[in-house]
Design a protein around this nucleic acid. Structure first.
Length: 446
RNA sequence: GUGGUUGUAGCUCAGCUGGUUAGAGCGCUGGAUUGUGGUUCCAGAGGUCGCCGGUUCGAAACCGGUCUUCCACCCCA
């Protein structure tokens, strides 16, 4: 049979894993610096944990895990007969693959609340699964790197998380624009024009402003039962790009004013420090996931066409559905696969990260091969990553291998080198050769 | 989930309105070069033309189905 992998999934070659780890290590180092600690949760969660958290669209994209055993005999016979898939699903699948890291984290916090010190700051780097139709930069299995803090509603954390974005992307050399908005501001708009009951519909439409333009948004709003007059007023409010003017428009919208107040406070923290990247207030930023309640973030790469490479926000009530009230959380997520694609496109990966060893020994015959193995062991015992070509093959073949694995140095050992102890060290990039003792080589490579 | 698109050597792709033994570049293997890779030259290996079925004397090409890729929508990292 012909081997294949499921749609939207990928294998990773050694060089790709090396690059991905470079991204992960960079992100981890920043998370740690800010005091976040790592946790892990299972790939599968109970469907009761996951359903209803991501909106109707999200529920459709959840991967369900078929029950083990004789699941058909326990299935909902009526649903089976009616060919009602969604009703049947409940009776034959009680587990699902995690869709993001935030909801499982809320479940985790609720279950382990007595073991955690609040505010609790955690990071988590694990794959998630979505039954979405694949496209470029969009997979059914992909890694997310999340940092969240729960147990405090201080806007200091919003500022801190934006600083983390700023640090990570400047370390990775990606120029980004960090967009910020507040859900309460959006609610204020809905309130101000009298469509508070259609809040979600409104956010979905205005989120597309930069994509489909004003006309498109009006059309979209119309399809969602928001009349032309209301739509025009929404567009006018969206043109306001400073908080002072916005607060005047929100005279009678306490929720909207609160959103403005939060943004001000957030900025007052951020203003105490310098940032490398642009941080922009974007009133049309909405974000799809319905659990956000306060500040929301999205990160876009400046120099390349790609969907967002990070997103996050404040969720005041996420643990409530698990029975834990008044625990506010805020978090951010990095889309590792897309960051990978952006860095590949802009050629931002350092060449060094695909180097696995510092030096490769090359021997000319059986006797020197044995001797080289001894020298190799000595070098390794000094903590230097090194290897020996497994047989004294033709030099050309061994050198080609050295070239293929991108090793910076080769150490040539023939009869002369073995008898004198003076080894030939060749630097691959320049081709320059030197005669040195193993000790000298070790010192050079440390 | 809706509409479209793609699939030919390890990779990137040619292959005309259906007609002999399906090609190129790169890569790979060997040689030119018995102590030197990344350059050059020569030779060679490698293909159930995504898969299943249909039309036809004859299918890589036409038709249907299916899987996959990418694109738009939906949504999102």
């Amino acid at each position: 049979m012909k081997p294949s992998i499921p749609k939207g999934t990928r294998d990773f070659l050694p060089s790709q894993v090396a690059k991905r780890n470079f991204i992960f290590e960079t992100i981890k180092s920043v998370f740690s610096k800010y005091g976040y600690v790592p946790i892990e949760t299972p790939s599968m969660e109970n469907l009761t944990t996951l359903t209803g958290k991501y909106g109707d669209e999200g529920d459709k994209l959840l991967f369900k895990v078929l029950n083990n055993g004789d699941y058909l005999s326990k299935a909902d016979q009526q649903a089976l007969e009616d060919k009602n898939s969604s009703a049947l699903t409940k009776s034959i699948a009680k587990k699902g693959m995690r869709y993001d890291l935030t909801v499982p984290f809320a479940r985790f916090v609720t279950m382990h609340r007595n073991d955690l010190a609040f505010p609790f700051k955690r990071y988590q780097i694990q794959p998630v699964w979505r039954g979405d139709r694949p496209q470029k930069g969009r997979y059914q299995e992909f890694y997310q790197c999340d940092a969240d803090v729960v147990g405090s509603d201080s806007l200091m954390y919003e500022a801190e998380l934006v600083k983390i974005y700023d640090d990570v992307f400047s370390l990775l050399n990606i120029d980004v624009n960090i967009l910020v908005n507040n859900r309460k501001v959006l609610f204020g708009i809905a309130e101000a024009v009298g469509v508070a009951d259609k809040f979600i519909d409104m956010t979905v439409a205005i989120d597309k402003l930069d994509k489909i333009g004003e006309e498109g948004v009006v059309k979209e709003l119309g399809q969602r039962d928001i009349n032309n007059d209301q739509s025009q007023r929404i567009l006018e409010l969206l043109k306001i790009d400073n908080l002072t003017a916005l607060s005047e428009a929100f005279q009678d919208c306490p929720e909207g004013l609160k959103g403005i107040e939060e943004l001000r406070k957030f900025h007052s923290y951020l203003d105490q420090t310098e940032t490398y990247n642009n941080i922009t207030f974007d009133i049309s930023l909405a974000r799809g996931l319905s659990y956000y309640t306060g500040c929301i973030f999205e990160v876009k790469a400046s120099n390349v066409e790609m969907g967002s490479i990070g997103g996050g926000g404040r969720y005041a009530n996420l643990t409530e559905s698990f029975g834990l009230k008044d625990v506010s959380g805020v978090g951010i997520s990095f889309g590792a696969a897309r960051i990978f694609d952006v860095m590949e496109e802009l050629q931002l990966f350092p060449k060094k990260i695909t180097q696995s060893i510092k030096a490769l020994f090359i021997a000319f015959d059986e006797e020197t091969h044995n001797y080289a193995f001894k020298q190799l062991s000595i070098l390794r015992s000094k903590g230097i990553a090194a290897d020996l070509y497994p047989s004294p093959s033709k030099l050309k073949k061994q050198m080609k291998y050295a070239n293929d694995i991108n090793v910076p140095y080769v150490i040539l050992i023939g009869t002369d080198e073995m008898s004198s102890g003076a080894l030939t060290l060749k630097e691959m990039e320049t081709g320059e050769q030197r005669t040195l003792s193993l000790d000298q080589i070790a010192q050079l490579l440390v």
